[in-house]
């Protein structure tokens, strides 16, 4: 386990992301988008061998599928996972997804549906709520947000609550948000969660060269320092080698603007 000297921010995020599944056991791990998908693949091959993964379409695999054109690689299928079974799995709770909302608020609620205006005539129509309401009430969800700013981590509430959180006023009488399971939130600046007092957001680790004040300035709601707040662990050479194998076309270099180094210059 040799800590890498040089690594990109994307690789730091993938390595940190893999840890999200470390204590999950046998759950379906779904990473939506290149970095979460690579994080899930890295987790499967290192810290979370029990997790289940799909080929991105309708089958289960025991070896993470590399991103992009595969050449001679043929996935070996271990099971069938059409969408109907994905929903069965979601509702059973045996899943942990890592997703990328466009907005996240202090309650841990996420939005991918629409921005601004009226719901029936939004300023910007986005994806719709898709599977977020069901996912977020049934199983654990972590998040990856590539651009930590007050536009993404908003001051008030998200424009449309697609994934549920801890805002009691959004829960009908007789229901409660107590069971909502939010994992980690990984951004280009830090790793945080909503496990502070009363589900307050607390920073678990700062990426190398990032200060707490910098993160707070870029966040629309108050952050706490978690006990033992640390520097996000640099990936090891072994992790980097696995990441390179899972991403032979270097898609990870295209996710963050300018593909910056994992160690931010002071």
């Amino acid at each position: 386990m040799t800590t890498a000297k040089e690594f990109t921010l994307a690789e730091l995020i993938i390595a940190a992301g893999a840890q999200a599944w470390a204590s999950d056991g046998e759950v379906l791990a779904t990473g939506i988008g290149p970095l979460p998908r690579l994080a899930a693949g890295l987790a499967k091959l290192t810290c979370a061998p029990g997790i289940m993964m799909t080929d991105g379409e309708a089958y289960l695999v025991e070896e993470p599928i590399p991103l992009g054109p595969r050449g001679d690689y043929r996935p070996k299928l271990s099971g069938w996972m059409p969408y109907s079974r994905v929903f069965d799995n979601v509702w059973s709770g045996r899943r942990h997804a890592m997703v990328t909302p466009v907005q996240v608020d202090r309650y841990g609620q996420g939005n991918i549906s629409a921005l601004g205006g009226e719901f029936q005539k939004p300023k910007v129509a986005m994806l719709g709520v898709r599977g977020f309401p069901g996912n977020s009430i049934c199983h654990k969800n972590s998040m990856f947000l590539p651009n930590h700013s007050k536009r993404t981590f908003v001051e008030g509430e998200v424009d449309v609550v697609a994934s549920v959180g801890y805002n009691a006023k959004n829960w009908p009488e007789g229901t409660k948000p107590a069971d909502v399971k939010l994992g980690v939130v990984i951004t280009d600046l830090c790793v945080f969660d909503f496990n502070g007092p009363d589900h307050a957001a607390q920073v678990l680790s700062l990426h190398p060269g990032v200060t707490f004040e910098q993160v707070q300035d870029a966040t629309g709601f108050p952050l706490l320092r978690a006990a033992g707040m640390a520097t996000t662990a640099a990936p090891t050479e072994e992790q980097l080698a696995i990441i390179a194998k899972l991403d032979p076309h270097n898609v990870r270099a295209t996710v963050l603007k300018g593909n910056p180094s994992g160690v931010r210059a002071a």
């Binding site: 709520v129 599977g131 069901g134 449309v160 994934s163 549920v164």
Partner: peptide, 29 residues
Amino acid sequence: DEGLLLLGLQAAGHKLPFAATRVGLGSDV
């Protein structure tokens, strides 16, 4: 929610008025 669409169609096919679910609670759906 994608799953609510599934449940709504399933209820219709089973000639039921509704399907009971947690999906949608707590969200703007």
